[in-house]
Amino acid sequence: DEFHFHWNGRDIRVRGDSEELRRLIEAIKRGELSEEEIERAIEILER
């Protein structure tokens, strides 16, 4: 699976399928994380 979302003017695409990944992306979409937490998560996910 590939998750695709927009954040902070960026087009983010992440491959993978796990419950943890889904929860993280939902939290990002709901605005539950700080900008710094989101940046760090995206860096890890894009590897």
Rank of each mutant, 00 (worst) to 15 (best):
D1T: 04
E2K: 02
E2Q: 02
F3N: 03
F3T: 02
F3S: 01
F3C: 04
H4T: 05
H4G: 03
H4F: 06
F5S: 00
F5A: 00
F5Y: 04
F5Q: 00
F5T: 00
F5V: 00
F5R: 00
H6D: 05
H6P: 00
H6W: 02
H6Y: 02
W7G: 01
W7Y: 05
W7R: 02
N8R: 07
G9K: 02
G9W: 00
G9L: 00
G9I: 00
G9C: 12
R10G: 01
R10E: 06
R10D: 03
R10N: 05
D11Q: 14
D11F: 05
D11C: 07
I12D: 00
V14C: 01
V14S: 03
V14A: 05
R15L: 11
R15E: 09
R15I: 12
G16L: 05
G16P: 10
G16H: 07
G16V: 15
D17N: 11
D17T: 10
S18T: 15
S18E: 06
S18G: 11
E19Y: 07
E19P: 15
E19L: 11
E19D: 09
E20H: 09
E20V: 12
E20C: 13
E20T: 09
L21A: 11
L21K: 15
L21H: 14
L21M: 13
R22C: 04
R22V: 11
L24C: 03
L24G: 00
L24V: 06
L24M: 09
L24Q: 02
I25M: 10
I25F: 08
A27K: 15
A27P: 01
I28K: 01
I28R: 01
I28P: 00
K29I: 07
K29H: 13
K29V: 10
K29Y: 14
K29P: 02
R30E: 08
R30L: 11
R30G: 13
G31V: 04
G31Q: 08
G31S: 04
G31K: 14
G31W: 04
G31E: 06
E32S: 13
E32M: 12
E32K: 08
L33N: 03
E35I: 12
E36L: 15
E36T: 15
E36F: 13
E36Y: 12
E37H: 08
E37Q: 15
I38Q: 04
I38G: 01
I38H: 02
R40V: 09
A41E: 08
A41Y: 10
A41K: 11
I42G: 01
I42N: 01
I42W: 04
I42S: 01
I42T: 02
I42Y: 04
I42V: 11
E43R: 07
E43I: 10
E43L: 04
E43Q: 14
I44R: 13
L45V: 07
E46W: 02
R47A: 13
R47K: 12
